[in-house]
Computed example of a mutant assay.
Amino acid sequence: MALLDRIHTCHHWHPDNYRPFIIGTEIHGHVTHEFARKLSDFSSVFETSDNEVRVSENLTSFDDRSIAVESVIKQLVETGDIPRWRDEYYPITNQWGQPPLMKMDRGAAGYFGIRGYGVHVNGIVKTDQGLRVWVGKRSMDKPNAPGKLDHIVAGGQPFGLSILENLIKEAEEEADIPKALAQQAKPTGLLSYRCERDDGLRNDVLFTYDLYLPESFTPQNTDGEVEEFYLWPLEQIIDRITNTDDFKFNVSLATIHFLIREGHITPDSPDYTALVEGMHRQSL
């Protein structure tokens, strides 16, 4: 499988199967027609039509929207229409840095197709043999992508934390990286994608970081979400991304981004332009 196939995986969805999810005057996500019909049962919270689903215009504040929608989500969790309540909130905004219009439990994000934010960190070690990168294997107990290969640190961006605060928190929980070391992570840009997954429509923005770690450091998981860590040369990582489905889908995207930045994928490489363009989703 070519690297370009990994890009296509991150941008695969069928707009005709969805209706826009609107708050105020802007589209903030997309819901399936089936899910829209379930939301029509909650007419005090959602205004539904054949063409769209809209948060009721009677809900005019951050708190009003958040509380009302949360009530619906909890009922849908009870009926099994949404598999689980995560008790972790995402801000709903179309652009990071803008005041969110409301917050929503992470477990429902894919069902509304809202824009989720996350942080992904490349844990890099300089050795005499060249660069090595730490790879984590996700626990088999994880409900999302169990056993898949992942970054040394990666996680969704919850409401109420800055990107750096979240990076430091995730670094400590996932790899036992001290705060002073985690703070040395350098921002390297962002990625965006929209694709259909088992947990709904993923419409995400990932903030990417590089963290150079000393050879003497060995990550240790502290929250039970990572089964094992491996320190691999880039050639091994490229081989696993290209020839297996072992990596989590968005980790492949972020790793290709890293390979482009490091010059391991060059303008003379096949599909270079398509790979670079594939770092961001297409607007609807």
Rank of each mutant, 00 (worst) to 15 (best):
T218R: 11
S40L: 08
V72I: 07
I73E: 01
H30P: 05
E70Q: 13
E173I: 04
K103G: 04
K103R: 15
R240K: 15
Y209I: 03
L284Q: 09
I7D: 03
V125G: 05
L59G: 00
A180I: 11
A2E: 15
T188Q: 10
H30N: 10
N221D: 15
Q157G: 11
P100D: 08
R6K: 14
V121L: 01
E57I: 13
S43N: 15
L76A: 01
R19I: 05
R281G: 14
D204G: 09
Q183L: 06
K103L: 03
L211C: 07
F159C: 03
N243Q: 14
P219S: 04
L259C: 09
W232A: 06
Y117M: 01
A254N: 05
G160L: 01
S139H: 05
G156Y: 06
A145H: 14
G147M: 07
S139N: 10
K248P: 06
A180N: 14
L231T: 12
F42E: 07
R138Y: 04
L59W: 00
Q75W: 06
L213S: 05
G118T: 08
S61E: 10
I22W: 03
R240F: 10
H120N: 13
G116V: 09
Q184A: 11
Y193K: 12
N166Y: 11
S71T: 13
T48I: 02
L284D: 10
M102Y: 04
Y89C: 05
D87E: 13
A274M: 11
E47T: 13
L201Q: 06
M1N: 15
H11Y: 02
H151R: 03
A185Q: 05
K126D: 13
G110Q: 01
G224H: 10
L39N: 04
L164P: 08
G156V: 06
N58T: 15
Y230F: 14
R37L: 06
L259I: 09
H33V: 09
